[in-house]
Write a protein that binds this DNA or RNA. Structure first.
Lengths: 107, 107
DNA sequence: ACAATCCATAACCGTATGGTTATCGTTTAC
DNA sequence: GTAAACGATAACCATACGGTTATGGATTGT
């Protein structure tokens, strides 16, 4: 349970890296060159970030000739959704119990 | 848009810190002492982590005498839900349900 | 009054991490 | 065939970060 969200939270914690994922999600498949432009960092930095994202399953890569096309893999976010649902539910349940308690205290 | 999820992702990226939040979510309000036991790290480390979580809005603190009681604030997660729903249409249905859940927690 | 507990802060340290430039193998273009 | 473009990797650097011990202010217990 603990390990699944870890790589995801870590990967998305960096603003540059998150921006890459956001851009791929919004605009679809992109080459490294395209991603480097307007990224504010160098091409090697972009490649490294994409490597991290790929390792977390958040992006996929496809080679065509000398260029590499990257695309977002949003289903990889599901452990995060599960995590949030799980830990929000406790609050939700407690809220319900509190409501029940208050109801029972009324005359 | 970028700033809101940033502190949250960052805060939750560290395993020790996430474990603290998870524990507060599961078991309810706890003092620093209680949180330090079974945390695997020293009391100052716990205090520092709680400071980060508090800064991100994920926990609240309440002073009583010489001890400080911390409690989880799961609705602080909502920017993350927004972020995910925006950047991945794929999980929209699930997100809608989670958003409803979080909305019900609002005062 | 004194000792002990609680917690925050300061000072410090090693490592992880995000960035750079340099380079090299491939592949395209001329 | 030669040059240029693409992208990954290596080597390196500065800093951010998570951990520690030491300490001090506040509160509680004896």
């Amino acid at each position: 349970m603990q390990t699944a969200p870890d790589a995801l939270f870590r990967s998305l914690a960096d603003p540059t890296r998150r921006a890459l994922f956001e851009r791929l999600s919004r605009d679809g498949e992109q080459t490294v060159r395209m991603l480097t432009d307007n990224s504010g960092v160098s091409q090697p930095a972009v490649s490294k970030h994409l490597g991290v994202l790929k390792h977390a399953g958040l992006v996929r890569s496809r080679h065509k000739g000398r260029e590499t096309h990257y695309s977002a893999q949003p289903r990889a976010l599901s452990p995060l959704v599960d995590w949030m649902s799980y830990y929000s539910r406790f609050w939700h349940d407690r809220f319900d119990r509190l409501e029940d308690l208050l109801k029972r205290m009324e005359p």
